[in-house]
């Protein structure tokens, strides 16, 4: 039985999680030229969850959306190949702050009549962990953040949330915002025929203006620095030497 008609899954294009990125020598930003880019890993989990919900017959369609430059179509195509029904690119060259991203997503929710938005809990570039919560606030709807299990019954979503003290169970009325933690699911691999099929799926491009969103930059970035490296220490040969070294450092 359908629970919601449309699930919106925002996906961000970020540096691949396996790349070790560095600060540019002049401190003006990160050295990202030629670096492998991917869908933010938490967003891939969000998309996988949405697809499973559709496969259970609880939603009619899954829409992926990305806000960023034209190259984000790569990640949207990857999302379509994974199984999303259609994609929306909100094209902008600006590096938007989470509040503006949340405002844009709010506009998309209205446009698509979506009753469930599943986002990643955090984008692994800025590590902000804000957008889902901000969207929920602007929308005036509940949030189930850091979810590791999700189910539906009678217009209510039950979420297991990974919190510092363990697993917290909450119930939220739909429409709602969910953000994903790593253990929600394991995203599927895309098969080659699906990549070809994805080329024919609809991908629409919008502007911030068309969504009536005025981008706002509140924070002034003053610089990027490389954190101080921890000097590598000594190797000991056996447990006796280890105990001795621990004593010498005053931690035993």
């Amino acid at each position: 039985m359908t629970v919601v008609d449309t699930i919106l899954v925002p996906v961000k294009r970020v540096v691949d999680a396996n790349v070790r990125v560095r600060v540019k020598p002049d401190g003006s930003g990160m050295a990202l030229d030629g670096v492998k880019m991917s869908i933010n890993p938490f967003d891939e989990i969000a998309l996988e969850e949405a697809l499973r919900i559709r496969e259970r017959g609880e939603t009619a369609e899954v829409v992926v959306a990305s806000i960023g430059p034209a190259v984000c179509t790569q990640q949207l195509r990857a999302g379509l190949a994974m199984g999303a029904d259609r994609a929306i690119l909100v094209e902008t060259e600006l590096d938007l702050e989470p509040l503006t991203v949340a405002r844009t997503l709010k506009a998309l929710v209205g446009r698509e009549n979506s009753e469930l938005v599943i986002l990643g809990k955090q984008a692994i570039d800025g590590d902000n962990n804000q957008t889902g919560q901000m969207l929920a606030a602007l929308w005036g709807r509940p949030q189930a953040c850091f979810s590791s299990e999700l189910s539906f019954s009678n217009g209510i979503a039950t979420a297991m949330r990974e919190v510092d003290a363990g697993i917290e169970v909450i119930e939220v009325e739909l429409p709602a915002v969910v953000t994903t933690d790593l253990r929600l699911n394991e995203p599927r691999y895309t098969k080659l025929p699906d990549i070809l099929k994805a080329k024919k799926k609809p991908l629409e491009t919008l502007t911030l203006g068309e969504l009536d969103v005025e981008p706002q930059a509140q924070f002034r970035v003053l610089g990027f620095e490389t954190p101080p490296e921890r000097p590598s220490g000594e190797k000991v040969r056996d447990v006796a030497e280890l105990v001795l070294a621990l004593r010498q450092k005053g931690v035993l």
Binding site: V15, V21, R22, D125, F219, R220, V221, F224, E225, P227
Partner: peptide, 14 residues
């Protein structure tokens, strides 16, 4: 910290 602690960002707020 950003990028899993690979960089430290300095920001100013209004």
């Amino acid at each position: 910290p950003i990028y899993a602690g690979n960089a430290i960002l300095t920001v100013e707020t209004p």
